[in-house]
């Protein structure tokens, strides 16, 4: 393990609440251990700000092991920072150099209103799921788990799509603020599995229409979403959603 430490200049978006407009503030941090995670670096900053009587930076975080999807910010222009397939909590300071200036901005999209500093409201993603991101089975009465054989490869493909943590980095990085990767991943997962087939048409129609209603942009195949996705979800899922939606529209 390294014990290197670095000094940093930070420029962080500070916004009091949804109603006020925000500004960038600059902060200096000295002797940041390279073994720290990005969020621990922010913790150190917040402890410092608190001791100085200043308002600490509000940011979302929870599991800090890259799975809950709560954390996220745009670091030097890239959602979740420079490391591929890494959430902000799993990004370590060793990927930065002494003297670096780091610009930290919230995920920006019309559908993600900023609540405070780096905290945004991503409930639009939940509403997309509520529109149809499920298989309509009640608890009880499910057939035996082995009743429908599912090819291992299909289960793996479904799992690739199901790995989405709903962090919203795809929306934040998309030049159009589109939520196609998020929506496509869920539609894909459920349309690949035989259990999800009966509702596939209704699901595709309902989820796409919910997505449009939330004010997300349209996909122009820029592939930024795939590049920043911490779980490496492929835009192949968007292609699959396109097929599902067109099939449902024309032959629904």
């Amino acid at each position: 393990m390294t014990t290197k430490s670095i000094d940093l200049s930070l420029e962080i978006w500070r916004q009091k609440d949804s109603r006020t407009t925000g500004v960038f503030e600059s902060y200096q941090l000295k002797s940041i251990s390279a073994d720290m995670s990005f969020l621990e670096m922010l913790d150190v900053l917040n402890e410092k700000l608190t001791r100085e009587g200043l308002d600490p930076v509000a940011f979302d975080h929870d599991c800090r092991e890259g799975i809950c999807g709560m954390c996220g910010a745009v670091v030097n222009g890239i959602a979740h920072g420079p490391e591929p397939e890494t959430t902000l909590c799993q990004l370590h300071m060793r990927h930065f150099c002494n003297g670096d200036t780091i610009v930290i901005e919230p995920f920006r999209s019309r559908a993600f209103p900023i609540r405070k500093d780096l905290i945004v409201d991503r409930s639009a993603l939940d509403r997309i799921i509520q529109a149809g991101g499920y298989i309509s089975v009640n608890t009880g009465g499910a057939p035996d788990g082995n009743a429908i054989p599912i090819p291992s490869a299909t289960a793996e493909l479904a799992m690739d799509a199901a790995a989405c943590i709903g962090c919203g980095a795809c929306v934040a990085s998309c030049p159009n603020g589109a939520a196609m990767l998020f929506t496509g991943a869920k539609i894909s997962q459920l349309s690949l599995l035989p259990q999800g087939r009966p509702e596939r048409k209704e699901r595709a129609m309902a989820m796409v229409s919910a997505m449009d209603k939330e004010g997300f942009g349209n996909c122009t195949n820029e592939r930024e979403c795939e590049a920043v996705c911490p779980k490496g979800i492929s835009i192949r899922n968007i292609a699959r959603m396109n097929r599902e939606f067109v099939k449902a529209s024309f032959f629904g």
Binding site: I135, V137, A142, G145, N146, P149, P151, S152, A155, L193
Partner: peptide
């Protein structure tokens, strides 16, 4: 046992054998 059945019905992509069983 009911839990596994329920989760499979919900579309949880459990790992499968090549023959398609859990």
């Amino acid at each position: 046992n009911n839990i596994i059945d329920q989760c499979v019905a919900q579309g949880v992509p459990f790992a499968r054998e090549y023959g398609g069983t859990l």
